[in-house]
Computed example of a mutant assay.
Amino acid sequence: MSILVWPPVSDADLSKEIESTSARELEWLLSALQDTLASLKAGLEECAALLAPTEPGSTLVLSSLRSENLKGYITRLGGRIVKGDIQLRLPSLPPPRGQNAYRLSVSSQPTAPTIVLEQLTTTRTLINACLDVVDATRWTGDANNANFISGQLKLLHDNIQEAKAALKGGSEGQKGKTWYEDPLDSNVFDPPLPGNVSFHLSISEAALLLHVRTLEAAYPITGTNTPLSTSSGSYTGFSLRERLATALTGGRPAFHDEAHEVFSYRGQEVRVRDKVRVESQDPSLISAMAKLGALERNIALSRRSLDVVMGHDSDDL
């Protein structure tokens, strides 16, 4: 079958027709993208609602696998933990007299510090920024300016990718301080958290991840790389009860990935005696991450379509 145009068209006229067709196609796509932006806004608002501090919050069960080391629950309200009751049964943390577990209860006092999940704060900030971008693109920008729309779509795409990364655990640039760099205020709990216990909450794969560690003072190292004797160890900052617990369990080897590391915690060198890791799935966070993934794909498709019509290379998408 012939693909020749009849009657014949000159190269100049053919170029004009191609430009005219491309211009009409671009005009149609820019108009269609306004509907896409409206749909994106609705999806972003759904994500924001899932992460909003709405009463009564999300109560999540905490339970260690195949052991009784940790049992309890916490209640998340937006990016804050407002309630919690956890029972610990660890060899290096003897329970109070007459009890069979060590209890950690989130303080209900109005003046008590709050556990804040920075990754959720980051996610909400990025989602709100996306909503601002959508509004600016639809109402204050030039809807017929392809370069402007392309730039706004890229900004949306980048922000949504970062928001999704925060719910997955955080990119390298998003990851906050570690458990030993930014210890939790002991007054978050009532009674206060013992000095030899580290309580660290974070987000991983849209789930709440809790690490509880019991600590012991690390022995100073001699010039021959041989640890000094137990009697020369520094226990500054640990109570008599905590030092006694360390002494009673001193001969028991620790079995976890941090057993042979030394950390600087609250101004002194420590080792991790016992470590418990508990993961609790959060339905609201899972739903929010799934919606962000769908929005990310939608924007990527819109960017690719716009780049094709504009004649740009979209291999980086």
Rank of each mutant, 00 (worst) to 15 (best):
G79Y: 13
S186M: 05
K154N: 09
I3L: 15
P183T: 01
S284A: 15
F199K: 01
E261P: 01
L244R: 10
A254K: 12
V188D: 02
G78K: 00
E296W: 04
D185H: 07
P56S: 02
R89Y: 04
R252Y: 10
S64K: 02
R304M: 03
R273D: 01
V106C: 07
L50N: 11
D282E: 13
P192G: 00
E118I: 06
S39M: 12
P283F: 06
P220Y: 04
T121H: 11
Q161E: 09
S39G: 14
F238Q: 04
L120N: 00
T123K: 02
C130S: 14
L201M: 14
G251C: 05
A52S: 10
P194C: 03
A23H: 12
L77I: 02
P283D: 02
K291N: 11
S22H: 09
T246R: 10
D257I: 13
A48W: 05
S108H: 10
T114C: 08
G311P: 07
S232E: 13
L215M: 01
P91T: 12
L4K: 12
M310D: 03
L201K: 02
E45D: 12
L228G: 07
S92Y: 03
Y180L: 01
R252L: 12
A217S: 09
A288Q: 08
S171L: 15
R304H: 04
R89Q: 13
C130A: 13
R273I: 02
L104G: 00
G195F: 05
L156W: 04
H211Y: 15
A52I: 02
L184G: 04
V133G: 03
L70A: 06
S67T: 11
R271D: 04
V61H: 13
V309M: 05
N298P: 00
L14K: 12
L208R: 03
D282V: 07
E25V: 12
A288S: 12
L33M: 10
W139N: 14
R124E: 10
